[in-house]
Each structure stands twice: as structure tokens, then as C-alpha cells.
Design a protein around this nucleic acid. Structure first.
Length: 425
RNA sequence: GGAGAGGUGGCUGAGUGGUUGAAAGCGGCAGAUUGCUAAUCUGUUCUAGGGGUAAAUCCCCUAGCGAGGGUUCGAAUCCCUCCCUCUCCGCCA
């Protein structure tokens, strides 16, 4: 959520910085805010008078006045009158406040001033590349879903029977490889300093609102209507919300969490895209990195988050590149975002395998996550960041494709061999 | 699912209609003091919104005792609805 106070002070800046992400009407919010504050002032003055009358009645009766006498009656009459006025203002103020909050929830975060301007993903900026891209060499190079089916470790059709399209079942060595990847990623991130979290994977609406998936993107998540619970689209949601409505001690920061969870996405509007293999599923596994940090450190923390994610790809010897998203491609709550894209030789392209965002205080404000500095009055909002470290299914896809051998086998990266207990699939 | 209990400030825990942001204790912070590993004394101690001010960690107003309504001149205290937690029984990975 953007800061209403700052918006009030400098609407032009907000408007112009938001322009790179679409058109948003801030004027209406400002008008509502103006009226709300006017009413609040009047209301609070009336309230003050009402409190005063209440006190007087109490005192007068204590001093022996007749509770039914004229003195008390006069005060009560005025009290009733003030109350009548209040009963008109109160609902107005409440409605205005609700309307403002509702509209603010629909405004995306301001892009960082350092975020490249651009309309869509074609204007993202490549930051660097790592590793040697393997170029398809005739018929020996297969896409990962063919490799998976050939090896008998994917059961795509049966998954459709059990659930729907866009679900995948891994069997035998495939299941073991997925599990090995998860364990490997967690071990690496724990070593890097992240504390592991295994959170609920159903969350309530408040949680999704805090991290920004609601109210605008309800159609992206699976919902359990009867219970106000949703399947998480990413561990970012439960892990960040661990600290919702809390005031942390400054000394507790930064908090680094890594979290393996399944993730569930409806992928509305992506019909026909990536229909095969592991790239775009309704359910997939991911190890997520989440950071809760001091505002002054969020820039640095963002850089190290990207490094921590990229490190997994380097250890697995998978070629990748780092791309900085332009303003038009930025996620709703992000101020700045780097994607890691892994090389998929079958498609001869890089595909997103991690998205590392800095939300600044956007989520903290929605979720009311603050910290307090010892000896200082008041509180500040923390900054939140997160990124995949990594998407496990896509890692498996990249691994199968990049490590496939001419004889049809798939080599296992050295770092994974202790986990899987074998050198080839 | 059945029965019961309960939700008060960082914590423990008073408070059943009248200056209650809310007793007391603990903790925290600041200061004083003591030669003994810490004790004692004094003071202080929340958050949010709005307004004032050049500005503030300063002043003023309002709100906050799970949430939302209601009764009343006045509600932590009374009424209604909802949420959550705990205990026992049942069921269950």
C-alpha cells in the first residue's frame, strides 16, 4: 500500500511515477481523504464535548444533585443532542475511511527510481549471464517432458485423470530427484544464513491482502470458499504474514527465512501456453527466500538475495542470466525486481526460474509489520523482500535438458549426487 | 461434532455503569546510591488517526480492554452478532 500521508503531500510525484505502470486515479482518493479529515475534525470536537458532559453529569450527581433534577436534565438533553449529531457523522466517516482503504489496496507500488522504464517484458534489461549455453545438436537433444516420459519418471496423462491438466506426477527417480533438489536448496540456503520455515499452505484472506494477491488478483488463486482459506500461490504469503500486525525489535532484524512449500496457481488466461512438461503447472514445488529488513538495508539485502538464489544455479552448473524487470513488467507490490532465467536448450531460450523482488514498505504497510528502535518513540514499517531459491519443477526441467547425454541418460550434477545416491538417471 | 471456560497494556493480573490509558506486580528505560558480582530508592513507560508548529521524539483533540453493532448523558463493565483460544468427550493423520 502506498503511503497516504506522502501522497497527500506530493500527489504529482506519485502520479508521474505510477504512470509507467498504467493509469491510476489518485485524485478521487485525495478528494475522499479531504472530506474524511474534515468530518473527522468536526466529529472529534463533538466527541470531546460529549465526553465533557458525561463527566459533568457524574460530578454533579456525586456532589448530591438530584439525578432527576433540572441541572442534570439539562446536561442530559445536551448530551442527547450532541449524540444525535455524532450519529450522522460517524457512519459518513466510516464509509469514507473504508472507501479510501479499498481504493488504496488497488494501487500498485511505486517503481524504484532505478527501475528501468518500459512497457512490457520485451523492455526488461539483461544484467549479466553465467555459464555456457548449450546449443541443440540435431535429434539427440530432447525437451524435458520427452526425457521424463522416456525415463518413466513423469506420469502426465494419469495426473490429468487424477486431477486436471497442468498437474504432474513424479515417479521413482523423478520423485527422488525432486526431493533431492528441495533438500539441496534448503541446505544451501540454511548455510547462507536463512532460517527454515514450514508454514501453513492454506491461508486466510487477510494474509493474501497483506502480500498483495488480494483484492485484485483473486482469480489467480485457488479458494476454499467455505472456510475463507486459499491455497498459497507462493510461500511468500504465509512466511511474510508470520509477522503481520507485529512490532518487532530493531535488534531482531534482519529476518531471513527459507521455506519449501508446494505452490498453487490457477494460471487463468494462460490457456495453450507451456502445456507440456513442468514449466507451468497448477501445483509446483518451490523453495522461497523471504527477508524482513530495516529500510536502510533493503537495497543491499536485495542484492544478496539475488546472489543466494543464483548460487543454486551455479552449484548445479546451470547456465542462467539475470534480468531486471522494467516498470511495465513489475509485479503489483514490487518496487524493483530481478528475474533469474535458466537456459533451456530445447527451446533455446532462458526461462524464469526465480523472481527476486524488493517491496520496500508496501507489504509491511498492508500487513502492518513494524519495528521499534530501543529508546525511540514510535514505530517504522519494515521492508520486505522475497525471491525463489528456486522453483523446483523448472530446475528439474532445466537439469534434465542441460544434463541429457547422447545415450539418453541424464547426468546428475555432482552437488546432487550425495542426495540422490546416483550419478545418472 | 457434543459439553464447558475464557479473551484487559511487553508479561502476570485487578477491575461489573461515572475524571479508567485503565490498580498492583514483573519487565523495560533514565537518574541516584551502595565496595561486592547485584541490591535499594526515585522518576518514567503504549499505539493509531487528526489538528497545531518552521519542525519535532513538543502541545491539543479523538479512538483503542478479541471484532462489529446496540442501550445510556456516560460502557472494560449491560445487551446482540461474529471471531479466536483453552479444557473434557467423540472422531481422526
Amino acid at each position: 500500500m502506498i503511503d497516504l500521508k506522502l501522497l497527500r503531500e506530493d500527489p504529482e510525484t506519485f502520479q508521474s511515477r505510477l504512470a509507467s505502470r498504467g493509469s491510476y486515479d489518485l485524485q478521487e482518493i485525495l478528494a475522499l481523504d479531504q472530506r474524511q479529515r474534515e468530518i473527522e475534525q468536526t466529529r472529534s470536537q463533538l466527541q470531546a464535548r460529549s465526553n465533557e458532559i458525561g463527566k459533568q453529569v457524574g460530578q454533579v450527581i456525586k456532589q448530591g444533585a438530584d439525578p432527576k433534577g433540572p441541572e442534570v436534565q439539562a446536561l442530559r438533553a445536551e448530551g442527547s443532542q450532541v449524540k444525535a449529531q455524532l450519529s450522522e457523522l460517524e457512519p459518513q466517516e466510516r464509509e469514507l475511511k473504508a472507501a479510501i482503504a479499498q481504493q488504496l489496496l488497488l494501487i500498485p507500488n511505486l517503481p524504484s527510481p532505478t527501475t528501468p522504464l518500459g512497457r512490457d517484458e520485451t523492455e526488461n534489461v539483461e544484467v549479466r549471464r553465467w555459464g555456457d549455453e548449450q546449443i541443440p545438436q540435431g535429434q539427440t537433444l530432447k525437451p524435458h517432458w520427452e526425457i521424463g516420459e522416456t525415463l518413466g519418471i513423469f506420469q502426465g496423462e494419469r495426473s490429468v485423470k487424477v486431477a486436471q491438466s497442468r498437474f504432474m506426477t513424479l515417479v521413482g527417480a523423478g520423485a527422488a530427484l525432486e526431493r533431492s533438489l528441495i533438500a539441496f536448496m534448503l541446505d544451501q540456503q540454511i548455510q547462507a544464513g536463512y532460517i527454515e520455515v514450514l508454514p501453513p499452505i492454506l491461508v486466510n484472506s487477510d494474509s493474501l491482502t497483506a502480500t498483495g494477491q488480494l483484492p485484485k488478483f483473486a482469480e489467480e488463486s485457488f479458494q476454499c470458499v467455505q472456510d475463507d482459506l486459499w491455497l498459497i500461490p507462493t510461500a511468500e504469503v504465509p512466511v511474510t504474514n508470520l509477522y503481520r500486525d507485529e512490532v518487532l525489535e530493531e535488534s531482531e532484524l534482519p529476518i531471513w527465512h527459507c521455506s519449501y512449500t508446494p505452490c498453487f496457481r490457477r494460471e487463468a488466461g494462460s490457456y495453450g501456453r507451456d502445456t507440456r512438461g513442468l514449466i507451468r503447472l497448477h501445483q509446483f514445488n518451490k523453495v522461497e527466500l523471504v527477508k524482513i529488513v530495516h529500510p536502510e538495508r533493503s537495497e543491499t539485502e536485495h542484492q544478496s538475495l539475488v546472489e543466494n538464489a543464483a548460487n543454486i544455479l551455479e552449484l548445479l552448473q546451470l547456465p542462467y542470466r539475470v534480468v531486471e524487470l522494467c516498470t511495465g513488467d513489475l509485479g503489483f507490490g514490487a518496487a524493483k525486481c530481478y528475474d533469474l532465467e535458466v537456459w533451456l536448450p530445447s527451446a533455446q531460450t532462458y526461462r524464469e526460474i526465480s523472481s527476486c523482488s524488493n517491496f520496500l514498505d508496501f507489504q509491511a504497510r498492508r500487513g502492518n509489520i513494524r519495528f521499534k528502535t530501543k529508546g525511540q518513540k514510535g514505530t517504522q514499517f519494515v521492508h520486505t523482500l522475497n525471491g525463489s531459491g528456486l522453483a523446483v519443477g523448472r530446475t528439474m526441467a532445466a537439469l534434465l535438458e542441460n544434463y541429457q547425454q547422447a545415450d539418453g541418460r541424464v547426468a546428475i550434477p555432482e552437488v546432487l549426487q550425495p542426495y540422490l545416491g546416483r550419478e545418472f538417471l
